[in-house]
């Protein structure tokens, strides 16, 4: 797969979203990142409803957990329960280290769970690793 890969980034914190985008923008593989700020928008985007009618289906979802309105757990549950969407890989990327969150997310079908590191260097390498794994090594469904 040589075309530009598409990432849906769901994060309500512009500071974190910005850092994540910075790393993705400097990747050697061209990426198109769409950022939405809450769970409802994320599902609208995925279902191409309303203003997202023209949106294209992403190859990967990077999902924060604590979001306004509909939180990440609910988004994850809906995506994984939807036969149209459930094969999309979802990476949870969140501040929470809570064992309960981790267990719950895998139970709901998350494809991996990454806690946002506090240190800038580690934050960058975490995002780079996610990008590198899913687009450099993993095989994805068409």
């Amino acid at each position: 797969m040589n075309s530009t890969h598409k990432i849906l980034l769901v994060d309500d914190n512009p500071a974190d979203a910005n850092l994540t985008c910075e790393v993705l923008a400097t990747s050697e593989r061209p990426a198109q990142v769409n950022t939405v700020e809450d769970g409802e928008q994320a599902l609208e985007f995925l279902h191409r409803n309303g203003k997202y009618a023209e949106a294209s289906r992403p190859d990967l979802i990077i999902l924060d957990l604590n979001l306004p309105r509909k939180d990440g757990r609910a988004v994850l549950a809906e995506v994984k329960a939807d036969p149209e969407l459930n094969e999309l890989p979802v990476v949870i990327f969140t501040t929470s280290h809570s064992p309960r969150d981790i267990a719950r997310c895998y139970e709901l079908g998350a494809n991996s769970y990454v806690s946002k590191p506090g240190n800038l260097g580690q934050f960058f390498s975490a995002v780079r690793s996610i990008e590198n794994f899913w687009f450099g090594f993993a095989s994805l469904p068409d």
Binding site: N13, A15, D16, L19, T95, S96, S98, K116, G118, N119, L120, G121, F123
Partner: peptide, 17 residues
Amino acid sequence: SHDLQEPLRMVSAYTQL
């Protein structure tokens, strides 16, 4: 400590940047 981590990470990340 959980809730303080996120804003603190912003301060820390952007001052490092």
